[in-house]
Write a protein that binds this DNA or RNA. Structure first.
Length: 257
DNA sequence: ATGCCTCAGCTCCTGAGA
């Protein structure tokens, strides 16, 4: 039996709900992690998603952030945000689905190196790492996916020279990303051949998508036990071609028997 | 250009995103 998992920053679930439902109808996934819901918990469209055949866990926030985990089978052992890390912002939702530990996360943007928001991003990343370390000790089968707001290297950047050491591309952010890898995780997308300019986000401005000016900042990291079952992992750019798209595209991981 | 586009909100401008 196969299993599919995906992550998608929808940039307002209120605006994007029809596209999410369309995408789910065309792509039967077992788990979908959503980021940037931009709605409060009372506004979450649980009924529409239930009608589409999905259970949901959600952790919303007014105006900004907000995350959800949709699943074909009910999720258990739910954790919201990083335990022990005081945070006003709703960024993490973790649960067990079909024996798989799934963490969906919306990493802080960071705005610019040296800013207060960058400092918050660094502290958040440190806290996330220590918590993920503990989760890994308890759950060999784990997937950490979401909008990381960090590129791995030049391959993930449309203009590596022009964007050198700018937000999402700084050495400091990449060291934090590498530290997650060093916990025993693997970037699932890079396990498989990918097209040129394989990005997951494109700026709304200046026809970023059409001009292939993007970044790969949405990632699916997997443990060795999950890696051994992975048969495919890729960005699905189709929804970025919609009339009023999110600036991010989904990333989909397929697991075999 | 400290912009460009998109979204939310104490909405006709501002903050934030990336």
């Amino acid at each position: 039996m196969t299993m599919k998992l995906a992550t998608w920053n929808v940039n307002s679930l209120t605006v994007r709900l029809p596209q999410v439902l369309d995408w789910l109808a065309a792509n039967t996934v077992d788990v979908l992690a959503l980021q940037e819901l931009k709605l409060t918990d009372d506004k979450f469209p649980a009924q529409a998603l239930a009608d589409a055949g999905y259970h949901a866990q959600w952790f919303g926030q007014k105006t900004y952030n907000g995350v959800a985990l949709l699943s074909k089978t009910p999720a258990t052992d739910v954790v919201k945000n990083i335990p022990g890390f005081e945070d006003e912002q709703s960024r993490v939702l973790c649960a067990t689905v079909n024996g798989l530990r799934v963490i969906g996360a919306y990493f802080p943007n960071g705005q610019a190196p040296g800013s207060d928001k960058f400092d918050y991003k660094m502290r958040w990343l440190t806290a996330l790492r220590e918590w993920v370390r503990a989760e890994l000790a308890a759950h060999p089968q784990l997937v950490l996916m979401g909008d990381y707001n960090i590129t791995f290297d030049d391959l993930d950047v449309w203009d590596p020279e022009g964007l050198r050491e700018t937000i999402h591309c700084t050495t400091e952010e990449r060291q934090h990303l590498q530290a997650l890898i060093d916990l025993g995780l693997t970037d699932a997308v890079r396990l498989f051949p990918q097209p040129e300019k394989n990005f997951s986000w494109w700026d709304y401005r200046d026809f970023g998508f059409r001009r292939k000016r993007g970044l790969r900042i949405d990632h699916v990291l997997v443990t060795e036990a999950v890696k051994s079952k992975a048969t495919a992992c890729a960005v699905d750019v189709t929804p970025r071609k919609n009339e009023r798209p999110s600036d991010h595209a989904p990333v989909v991981l397929t697991l075999g028997a």
